[in-house]
Simulated scan of single mutants.
Amino acid sequence: MKNFISTLKFIINLIILNIFSSGISILFTCIFFKNPIKSTLISISLSYLIMFSLLYYFSTSYKYLISKDDFKKISIKNVYYIALFGFGFSVILSILTILLDSIFPSYTEISNKMLSQNDSIINLICSVVFIPICEEIIFRGMIFKFLKRYYSLIGAIFLQALFFGISHGNIVQGIYTFIGGIALALIYVYCGSMMGNIILHMIYNLCGLVIMPEYLFADESINYLFMIIGVIVFIFSSLKMISNYKKGSRIRLLNDQ
């Protein structure tokens, strides 16, 4: 019960802070941008910036959930496998999204609005670079690390993914971001650094918002080829990372002895 109360208090505090930051950023975009709807990604990015600033300057407990060690470098080989995994994972989740879209047709309008946001360099940078970094710091950094204090690793992975899915505000995004949240946390555990899950998140957003809409299912002749390549790449990269993680665990065990 104590763990539940601590978790609930932590999440509520972050939600209140996010609502306050979002309110300021929305007001800013409404005042300084002619079309606030087209500036949604800028508003979200500004909201995260305000939120982090408030956490840094006024919080004595939450800001220390993130340290320099969380951003240590990862090997080029891991970047390569993560990039492959990100592409394959994007293909699989894109297929899932299309299937869910047929069950929840209302998501089509949301999806079209999301894609229409990427019509400028600033919006593209926000969606592919800035927002992934901020979301990883919050969900895989602060929330995941906090949850690991009170729950098992599996429990922490599940809960942070659940919060990540709920935060996106609709059923379709909630489902695929929940699955994505699990994958992102596993990459974090695999790398021992947030650089891994940040790279994966960036690749996923790049593929999901730019590459996939342009090529996947745009031409029926390449549909199956895209899907086959995506699945093969996903399986290959997953097996390689699992193998590397097992080898690393054995080496750490021998060193401890």
Rank of each mutant, 00 (worst) to 15 (best):
I37L: 12
F139K: 02
E214F: 09
R140G: 13
A218M: 04
F226Q: 08
I44H: 07
A185S: 15
I137N: 05
L54I: 14
I44R: 11
D256A: 14
I24N: 00
D69G: 04
S237K: 06
T177G: 04
Y80G: 01
I133E: 01
Q257F: 14
L84Q: 10
I182G: 07
N118C: 11
S43I: 07
Q173F: 02
F10Y: 13
D219N: 15
N118I: 13
S47T: 04
N223G: 06
S59C: 01
G196C: 09
I82Y: 10
L209H: 02
P105D: 04
F144V: 01
V172R: 00
F33I: 10
S39F: 10
K246S: 07
F4K: 14
F10C: 11
K77G: 10
I228W: 00
L253T: 10
T7K: 01
G181C: 07
Q160P: 15
L54S: 04
I242W: 02
P132C: 12
A156I: 13
I143E: 11
L115Y: 00
N3S: 11
F164N: 09
M195G: 02
I232L: 14
R250L: 15
L253D: 11
M1Y: 10
Y48V: 08
V129C: 14
V91N: 00
M194S: 08
I179G: 02
K148G: 08
N205M: 05
N112I: 05
I171T: 14
R252D: 13
K68M: 10
I76D: 03
I229A: 11
I44S: 15
F236C: 05
R140T: 15
V129S: 08
S249L: 13
H201W: 07
